[in-house]
């Protein structure tokens, strides 16, 4: 693999040079597959999403303005592709009654010992909607407004789902802590 910088890589891809396009795929696909996996139900589905995302990235790279992190730009495309690919029912109503629930306290030591794969397995146990909101808010750092736009839900719904997701994770971590103790 060549050690081209991201800027060279981007410019090469903008010029539709297949060598640069291949390098981009080889360099970033493992990272993007991790993102794809968090928003899909299975590994094959994640691979399909990744393939579609890479095609979109290489086609729309001419529009990339070199503002912000390139990896974050690509991750956003993967997330959008994954979310759009899902033919699932969207939540069209809000749990406005849950807005004022306090954020649950997560166990101290249990999660700090977890590595990435164990964390991902734990997050995968969340229901679909909760998992998406948790991933977008906690891992990607999206605001509730952005999550609302992405998932086509109200920001308050996003907020409440995040709260519920944390609550579920709290229970699981406490259970895990007891098991390890």
């Amino acid at each position: 693999m060549n050690n081209n910088s991201d800027i060279e890589l981007i410019n090469g891809c903008k010029a539709q040079d297949q060598l640069f396009q291949k390098e981009l795929v080889l360099r970033y696909s493992p990272l993007l597959l991790t993102v794809s996996k968090r928003y899909t139900d299975s590994y094959p589905a994640a691979q399909d999403v990744l393939q579609d995302s890479l095609v979109k990235i290489l086609r729309s790279i001419v529009d990339y303005k070199h503002t912000g992190c390139f990896a974050a730009w690509m991750k956003r495309i993967v997330i959008n592709t994954a979310l759009k690919s899902k033919s699932r029912k969207r939540y069209s109503f809000e749990y406005s009654g849950l807005q004022n629930i306090n954020e649950p306290e997560l166990p101290a030591e249990a999660f700090s010992k977890l590595n990435a794969q164990e964390l991902m397995k734990l997050i995968d146990t969340l229901p679909n909607g909760f998992r998406e909101v948790f991933n977008l808010a906690a891992i990607e750092g999206y605001s509730h407004n952005e999550i609302g736009e992405l998932l086509n839900i109200a920001p308050s719904t996003s907020r409440s789902q995040l709260t519920r997701a944390r609550k579920i994770l709290q229970k699981k971590l406490i259970h895990l802590e007891k098991m390890t103790a």
């Binding site: 493992p30 597959l33 991790t34 968090r38 590595n115 990435a116 794969q117 964390l119 997050i123 891992i139």
Partner: peptide, 8 residues
């Protein structure tokens, strides 16, 4: 942990 994780 997760943000930088790469899946082979």
């Amino acid at each position: 942990e997760i943000g930088a994780h790469e899946t082979p």
